[in-house]
């Protein structure tokens, strides 16, 4: 049984939970698998570093919390610092280039995007998380582009679907433009390591 673990972190107001919700929805409902999302909840969730975790699996997710982190999406420096050590040596780092200055381990796949600036260019900085999501989607190839877009349409507030899809595609295209068909500069493959005992 495949098991993949993801953590998304950022600061309050960046839409960390919505991003997690869309990933979970896309993977479980749209792609027919299982996805368990746990919000990091409590006083810390009100402060600067906000976080949500997902466990993805083709069958029932038994252990709902993280065991070995396969992918970290960091939208803020604080969040990155707080959780970077949890990431597997071969785990993927996806980060906001202007806000996170990563210290990478040898051979670690890492993908940066200027998602905040791109969102500003689109006209609404609030969709920064969806730009990041589009980028993450392109990096990881978890489900099809159509499934991602369905999950977004079903998750965002009514009337904002087009704006969010535009943001998603901007993030997706950024990957194609900057990472040459899936390879980060000087680095190897991007797929989340699978085939671990659940």
């Amino acid at each position: 049984m495949s098991r993949k673990e993801i953590r998304i972190t950022g600061f309050g107001g960046q839409g960390v939970v919505l991003s997690g919700h869309i990933i979970g929805r896309a993977y479980s409902i749209d792609a027919g698998n299982e996805a368990t999302m746990i919000q990091s909840f409590g006083p810390e969730a009100r402060g600067s570093a906000c976080s949500t975790t997902l466990v993805l699996s083709e069958g029932e997710v038994l252990y709902p919390y993280l065991q070995e982190l396969d992918a970290l999406v960091a939208m803020s420096g604080d969040g990155y610092e707080k959780y970077k050590d949890d990431l597997n040596d071969d785990g993927i780092l996806v980060y906001e280039k202007d806000l996170v200055k990563p210290t990478l381990k040898e051979g670690q796949p890492a993908y940066g995007i200027t998602s905040t600036r791109i969102a500003e260019e689109i006209g609404r900085v609030i969709v920064q998380n969806i730009v990041m999501l589009g980028f993450f989607a392109a990096v990881t190839d978890l489900v099809t582009k159509e499934q991602w877009e369905n999950a977004i349409k079903d998750s965002v507030p009514a009337g904002t679907e087009e704006l969010n899809l535009k943001a998603f595609r901007a993030g997706w295209d950024y990957f194609d433009e900057h990472y040459d068909g899936g390879k980060p500069a000087g680095q190897e493959t991007a797929s989340i390591p699978a085939e671990k005992a659940d």
Binding site: H21, S28, E34, A35, T36, I38, Q39
Partner: peptide, 9 residues
């Protein structure tokens, strides 16, 4: 709490 705050299909 775990089931209460866990999001699934």
């Amino acid at each position: 709490e775990c089931v209460g705050h866990m999001t699934e299909k």
